[in-house]
């Protein structure tokens, strides 16, 4: 287990996001202050429409706040050019969307390899990496399927594989286990935990309280504001005991190990 370092990867100060103009204007994110340290695994919960997706979009540099400051690695993102934003998205951030956003015209492996295309990775290497990633999610038999030939859960796993393929240091996952049964959910959470253990920062939106056991900090939101913010060190300890019991999780780890040995 890696100790959370004191440096803030993400810090928000008075962040506000509004939609609409005039009478129709409403505040989706209101005056949010938030510090996220490197290596934290944060679960974000809250009722529908409270602004969780909007928050992730702002954190992932897809959306711009109307007010307030967003510091990424201590630097304000406001002045970053759009080309630089794209580069940060491609090298540092992995997105999993709420609705599984696969490119319909690309097959599974091409979808997973897509982020690598924008980092200048060679064709062969990208396909190899994508293939290895799919194997971790037990999707190696679906590599050449088109997105419309997949089940909902499979689609989601492909989307997560894609988010992880470029080894991002910040993972933004919007209900990654929304459509999945608990077994598949645990496989995915194991995968995220593994990424977390390597020192990466994870911010995950979820409606399932079970899933928060993997996180070491739980934030609940209400009407565009942070309602509660709890460190869950105790939960994390229990999680490591749970970890040993989850057979599927350990299987996925062993398969990973054997793959590393093969290389």
């Amino acid at each position: 287990m890696k100790k959370a370092e004191s440096t803030s990867v993400i810090s928000l100060r008075g962040l506000t996001k509004r939609y609409g103009v005039g009478d129709a204007e409403h505040t989706v994110l209101g005056n949010i202050d938030l510090e996220i340290k490197k290596g934290e695994f944060i679960a974000v919960m809250g009722p529908s429409g409270c602004g969780k997706t909007t928050l992730l979009n702002v954190l992932g540099l897809l959306d711009k706040p109307d007010e307030g400051e967003y510091l990424l690695d201590g630097k304000p993102v406001e002045r970053i050019t759009s080309a630089k934003r794209a580069e940060i998205r491609s090298r540092r951030i992995g997105f999993v969307f709420q609705s599984f956003n696969l490119v319909p015209r690309l097959n599974v492996i091409e979808n997973v390899a897509l982020p690598l295309a924008y980092t200048g990775t060679s064709h062969l290497k990208s396909i190899k990496r994508a293939s290895a990633m799919l194997k971790q999610f037990h999707l190696n038999e679906r590599e050449y399927y088109m997105p419309w030939q997949l089940s909902g859960g499979q689609t989601q796993r492909v989307a997560i594989a894609r988010a992880l393929v470029n080894d991002p240091s910040i993972i933004l996952a919007d209900e990654p286990t929304g459509n999945l049964d608990s077994k598949s959910s645990h496989i995915i959470l194991e995968e995220l935990s593994d990424i977390h253990r390597r020192g990466n920062t994870i911010i995950m939106v979820t409606h399932n309280p079970d899933m928060t056991t993997y996180a070491d900090r739980v934030i609940t939101m209400l009407d565009g504001k942070i309602d509660t913010d709890t460190k869950t060190a105790v939960v994390k300890n229990t999680r490591s005991t749970v970890d040993k019991k989850v057979t599927l999780g350990s299987r996925s780890k062993s398969s990973k190990r054997s793959k590393k040995e093969r290389k």
Binding site: L62, A86, R89, S90, F95, N101, P104, P115, Y118
Partner: peptide, 13 residues
């Protein structure tokens, strides 16, 4: 939509 996805995973303009 495809354009949105590509941008989100790191495509620049």
């Amino acid at each position: 939509r495809e354009i949105g996805i590509r941008k989100a995973v790191g495509a620049s303009n």
